[in-house]
Design a protein around this nucleic acid. Structure first.
Length: 109
DNA sequence: GTTCTTACA
DNA sequence: TGTAAGAA
């Protein structure tokens, strides 16, 4: 079954206006996050920002962190570290899976 | 009608 | 951070 865009958390489908309405934030705020490299959405052919559901979630996360007093620069580090952790976790899961396969295989040749 | 950039309070 | 001007 093909992966539908509506099911893809990483599909860039939302305009800045839609995101601003959903989260109740200003258009300028989202542009600021882009400028500060906290949340950097892809651009459409016309140069307009397009947000993925994942990024929308990250914006919400950013809102929470800011309420805790974290600066935008701090939020940027949190998000990048979180991305690295997720990458390491998937790599680790893959290695563990390979180890299971190896240990379950009968030595031969 | 929306979004973009840049500038300013 | 919010608001405004002018262009796309």
């Amino acid at each position: 079954m093909p992966t539908l865009p509506i099911d893809d958390e990483n599909a860039a489908l939302y305009t800045i206006g839609q995101v601003a309405d959903m989260l109740g934030v200003q258009l300028a705020f989202l542009r600021r996050l882009d400028e500060q490299r906290v949340i950097v959405p892809v651009r459409s052919a016309g140069g307009q920002r397009r947000y993925t559901r994942r990024e929308i979630g990250q914006v919400a996360e950013t809102l929470a962190l800011i309420e805790e007093g974290v600066t935008l620069a701090g939020v940027r580090h949190v998000l990048t570290l979180r991305h690295r952790v997720a990458q390491l976790e998937s790599d680790l899961a893959e290695l563990r899976q390979e180890r299971r396969v190896d240990s379950g295989r009968v030595a031969r040749g």
